[in-house]
Design a protein around this nucleic acid. Sequence first.
DNA 1: TCAACTTTAACTATTATAGTAATCATTTTC
DNA 2: GAAAATGATTACTATAATAGTTAAAGTTGA
Lengths: 264, 264
Amino acid sequence: MSKGKYYFSKSLEKGLRILSLFDGETPVVNQSMVAKKLGLNMTSTYRYINTLVEMGYLDKNPRTKEIRPAIQCLLMCVNLMQATDNLKIIRQVVDDIHSGHNISIDVAIAVEDTLVRIYHREAEEALTYSLPESSRNCLHNTALGKAYLASLPDEVMVDKIKSMALVAKTEKTIVDKEILKEEIRWARDRGFALQEEEYLPGVLAISAPLYDPVTARGVGAVSFDFSVLEHSTKSIQQQYGGLIAATAETISKLLPPIPVPAQQ
Amino acid sequence: MSKGKYYFSKSLEKGLRILSLFDGETPVVNQSMVAKKLGLNMTSTYRYINTLVEMGYLDKNPRTKEIRPAIQCLLMCVNLMQATDNLKIIRQVVDDIHSGHNISIDVAIAVEDTLVRIYHREAEEALTYSLPESSRNCLHNTALGKAYLASLPDEVMVDKIKSMALVAKTEKTIVDKEILKEEIRWARDRGFALQEEEYLPGVLAISAPLYDPVTARGVGAVSFDFSVLEHSTKSIQQQYGGLIAATAETISKLLPPIPVPAQQ
DNA sequence: TCAACTTTAACTATTATAGTAATCATTTTC
DNA sequence: GAAAATGATTACTATAATAGTTAAAGTTGA
């Protein structure tokens, strides 16, 4: 082999890169799209797609040639998500708090500035609201996002905010970058972030950042959600400020060492 | 290349088979275990695992050499599950019924005799109970499982039951194969299956099978769940027998063509 | 019906991988 | 605490798999 990559399978890499092309905004692809994105010729692209199709991971519409994830793929995903066993312990912690306090709880990890929700528990009799499983562009308008930003070194936080588009999800969403920065710094001092109907009308939240147990880098956040009908940000701070911080600390200790986002 | 498999990447296949080793019962593996399961030598195994590790899909504990799914993997899974856009439409249907009737609803697809739950919606103020995301050994003790069995040709159903171990989850779980067969046939005639505290005490359910829109093969099931405190199987049948059948029919029409479980 | 485009097939030069053997690292056993 | 056993990693090539060119076969839209 050429250089130092004796123990790296390029074929496997390409196949996985194909699977990684899909997300909520890209549920369907075609061969040339894949070829372009991966920088491959049509024949190699065909080979990898065909492999995934034959294995049942992708479906290809025989007429339109549209390619999309298949059931087999779902099965693998479900199994992999269950296998992520740090999750199990985290779930236990969350479930305990949930049953003790009847709060809606979210735990999310940041992957490339996307918050991936790894567990969610809903309060009984709560107004039902759900973040999607993973969200881009939510760092400024959710408690989870703000807590995560607050966990980063100030210059990194400032940099991120500079490059963000502050989309207004509701009237109350913060769209001024200076105000957002101030709020993040405030959250950093307190140890928790607040969110007041900035993501969905009627929903309040409090959130605290999660830190990698080894490197102490900020890696995600945990949040409690409430309805404006039953709570105010003031009451939430008083009642749950301590609990959210303690919960974040407990969960942080249970986290796996999370690799620094560098490669790929 | 050797024979007819010109357009099939064996490397990709092996890598995916490694990822597919993980599930709730197998959250951790080591290299020799993988080598044995895939029938590979240690060096090749090392290469594929190393590739997955370098790409961030697997974490390897540098000391113990334990291998487990990593965050990057979760991200891919979450994205893939969101990309499965038939899901989106199915979710829409389920959400409509949910908001119209306030019922707890599950939709599951059978993959190799495992029911993979593809969507779940919980009634407000319901007693909270959740099937795990995918379940083996639930064909005999859940409404979903029974409905799925009822969707199969009689001889296939009989075969499956013959090879099943009827684990008693509760006192009421059906453990007699003859009784189970009778119940499945009864369900087939009615168009829906019932479950009376056979999976969890206090939980009743009604379920109807999903059929592939093209082949008319049974591929999964949809169920409504209830609490014994508020319902009886009799009232459920009367009130929801029609709705569950109609829902199953609607969802069936929205399903993607599901490949016949053959290869692998 | 044709032109533009996409997908699939045939075909080899190239290169990635399999697998042996040797080395290194960590446990286990005595 | 040395010896043995087990497991992971590296070096090294023959061999098998893939890349990519070229061409053919489908599709789509005018």
